[in-house]
């Protein structure tokens, strides 16, 4: 079947098998391998992308279901001006270690702030419940999201970085 979608601002038209999951379409047909696969039970959120502005786990959607939609993947977040503020916050707060969960985590976090621009820590934790990270214990991920929302953090500040 033919599916067409706008991905990171560009039109993409491809033939897909009806059973192809969106995540595999993104990774294999579109070659956008920033979106990761961490599980086979829709549990980990590593595959999170924005579908028509909403964060979705792209392993729970068939490529054909995304026909006609607008998709943003992690590759679509940074601009010529540099990293997206959420990406920068993740770097500054050391919100990633191995980085495997990170693309999905960033996409989920951006969409969380769309919904709740100034969340409490508890709201950040609840909002990211569907995204698993094995490295960070979430501590610095939570801090990154709070920082990206413009809230001041009292702990020490890091130095350097792509945005600095």
């Amino acid at each position: 079947m033919q599916v067409s979608m706008t991905v990171n601002g560009g039109a993409q038209v491809h033939e897909v098998e009806p059973r192809t999951l969106l995540v595999h379409h993104i990774r294999e047909a579109l070659g956008l391998t920033g979106t990761n696969v961490g599980c086979d039970t829709s549990s980990c959120g590593a595959c999170t992308v924005h579908l028509d502005g909403e964060a979705v786990k792209s392993c729970t959607v068939l490529a054909v279901q995304a026909d006609g939609s607008e998709i943003t993947t992690i590759e679509g977040m940074a601009t010529a001006e540099g990293l997206h503020p959420m990406q920068r916050a993740f770097q500054e707060q050391h919100g990633l270690q191995c980085g495997f969960c990170t693309p999905g985590m960033v996409m989920a976090a951006v969409s969380l702030l769309d919904e709740i621009p100034t969340p409490t820590e508890a709201q950040v934790r609840e909002g990211l419940e569907g995204n698993l990270c094995r490295c960070t214990g979430y501590h610095n991920i939570v801090r990154a999201v709070l920082a990206a929302s413009g809230q001041a953090l009292d702990d020490p500040v890091s130095v350097g970085g792509a945005g600095a």
Binding site: G99, P103, A162
Partner: peptide, 19 residues
Amino acid sequence: RRVRREDPALLTGEARFTD
């Protein structure tokens, strides 16, 4: 507390895992 140079590639999807 220097931030990590590894991060931009991992944060943008540029980093390549085996798969």
